[in-house]
Computed example of a mutant assay.
Amino acid sequence: MDFFEKSLNDLKTERKIFHSEDDLKLSLALKLKENNPKLNIRLEKPIDIEMIDRSDKKSIVRAPIDMILIDENNHTYPIELKYKTKKLSTIYNGETFNLTKHGAADIGRFSFRKDIYRIEKYKTNNDNCPRGYVLIVTNDKSYFQDNVFDKNNLDKHFSFHDGFLINKIDSGWNYEKINQNKYSFTDKNIWVNQQLKIHWTYKKELFYKLDLQKDYRVKWNEYSKIENNEFKYCLIEI
């Protein structure tokens, strides 16, 4: 077990639930610092990464990495985190938690792959980066239970249910599921509706092509149980 996994396991015993992604991020950063006093930690550090869309157009995108750890040897460890919740109102250890329903799991699955892509790119562009991490904590069972690949959903290629192998080749959105009574395929190789509005998967970052450097096997682990809610986490080491 490396230093990051140890701090995550320690956090599990102290914080069973978080108010938000920022709450998770700060709590994990504090635990990492407590366990590794020589670490320097940067939150939301912006970096430039070359992105490629599905029309092969390249662009330099400036966006923050959630957390970057810097050890005494100036090695860096980039981390992307996600905290995806379904609605939950509860009192735990005398503290009230009101979690919102994030929904949009299809975009959440795409974003998880994008996080892996971005950490790979960071690692490639930084010789002093031994490894990085992508972490998601959620009480939304659709992420760890739903096999949207077998269901042939629009986001089937972005599934990361337990045991799934994330293929390094990005097959993109499953346009076989497009409702062709509402959308038609144009000579510009895009789907548009009857008002000539482009399908939402062609917009901005959802149109990125996210080919990875390797395949990744997905494993979900228990994080905590709050009343009838089960929180699980998936940690990908890059």
Rank of each mutant, 00 (worst) to 15 (best):
Y117K: 05
D53G: 07
S55C: 02
C129L: 13
D66R: 10
R113K: 15
E21P: 02
G94V: 09
D127A: 13
E44F: 10
H19A: 08
H19Y: 08
G132Y: 05
K38D: 09
D56T: 01
N40I: 06
I17G: 07
R118L: 00
L43N: 08
N40T: 12
P64W: 04
F97R: 06
H102E: 14
K121T: 01
T124Q: 15
D22R: 13
S27Y: 12
F97T: 14
K25H: 12
N35L: 11
R42L: 15
R42S: 12
N128I: 03
A104H: 10
E50V: 14
K12T: 13
D10Y: 06
K123T: 09
T100F: 07
I79W: 01
S20F: 06
D66F: 02
R62P: 03
I52Y: 01
R62D: 00
V61T: 01
H19R: 12
I41T: 13
G94D: 02
K25V: 12
K82D: 06
S55H: 14
Y122P: 01
A63W: 05
R15D: 04
T76K: 10
S89H: 10
L32D: 06
E95T: 15
I107M: 11
D127Y: 11
I60N: 00
G132N: 04
K25E: 03
M51V: 13
